[in-house]
């Protein structure tokens, strides 16, 4: 594990330049450039808000901002977009970089590090845009926002753990790459992001706790919309789970990396 860390530090220059290059390359020759990264999720929020707000507006208790649904939606999407991006990119990471891995000898751990870095960059930009929109909509953020720091770390660990496991499996069993987007889509709708948890039928409510993204998204709602600290017990459980998954992902990655090039 320390060897992984050491090679990451030695290749930090490569990791940083890859993140920057990815960013530059994605928006080269487009007029709005990096703005697109914020426009996409914000447009999604706008569509949801337009379609669903009148249906759901009445069911969000405790906040007397008439744009409360938009606030609620944006907080959830902030968390979900990081989760989905890290998993989605890890999923095809080793297949896409297969040629590079076959031809050039460099520490493979830099590849997921680049994914984490560039997803984090998108996430921070989206967060800044969110703060701006919150201010425009007249919502005062409280100090509870600092909770986002540990929350982001936990969310990253969770996403990277799942992403690594799926990414490694996808090299050997390509069906994984087909199934995951479907599962992710279903997962999004089974997580209270576009709707409040209160509309979940009573008999299913006990099942919700088995969804790790439920705890995370709820924490994001607490911090960003309700301005209060997340529930400590929930946070502890999800932290333990995320660290466990991350360790599993790294273990699998290490065990598989010798055979990965053979299968690519």
């Amino acid at each position: 594990m320390f060897a992984l860390l050491r090679s990451l530090i030695r290749y930090r220059g490569f990791v940083f330049s890859s993140i920057r290059n990815e960013f530059v390359a994605r928006f080269a020759r487009s007029r709005l450039g990096g703005l697109w990264m914020i426009i996409h999720p914000l447009a999604q929020v706008a569509i949801f808000a337009l379609v669903l707000s009148s249906v759901l507006a009445a069911k969000l208790p405790g906040i007397d901002n008439k744009y409360v649904y938009a606030l609620y939606l944006m907080s959830g999407i902030l968390a979900w977009s990081l989760f989905a991006e890290v998993i989605g990119r890890c999923l095809t990471l080793f297949i896409e970089k297969g040629n590079l891995m076959k031809k050039i000898s460099f520490p493979r751990i830099t590849l997921p590090a680049i994914v984490v870095g560039s997803s984090l960059l998108n996430y921070v930009l989206l967060f800044l845009a969110l703060l701006l929109v919150f201010a425009i909509l007249g919502h005062r953020s409280s100090l509870a926002v600092v909770w986002l720091l540990p929350l982001t770390v936990v969310l990253l660990a969770l996403s990277l753990g799942i992403g690594l496991v799926l990414g490694v499996l996808n090299v050997f069993v390509r069906d994984v790459g087909q199934v995951v987007p479907i599962v992710l889509q279903a997962w999004f709708w089974f997580t209270p992001i576009a709707y409040p948890v209160t509309i979940i039928p009573e008999q299913f409510k006990s099942l919700v706790v088995f969804n790790p993204m439920y705890s995370i998204v709820t924490a994001y709602h607490d911090v960003l919309v309700y301005g209060k600290a997340p529930e400590p017990q929930q946070l502890a459980i999800i932290t333990a789970l995320s660290v466990g998954l991350l360790l599993l992902g790294l273990f699998l990655f290490r065990r598989a990396s010798a055979e990965m090039v053979d299968a690519l």
Partner: peptide, 10 residues
């Protein structure tokens, strides 16, 4: 710079 980084140079 990028390719140099890939070869392990700062």
């Amino acid at each position: 710079y990028h390719a140099g980084g890939l070869m392990g140079f700062s």
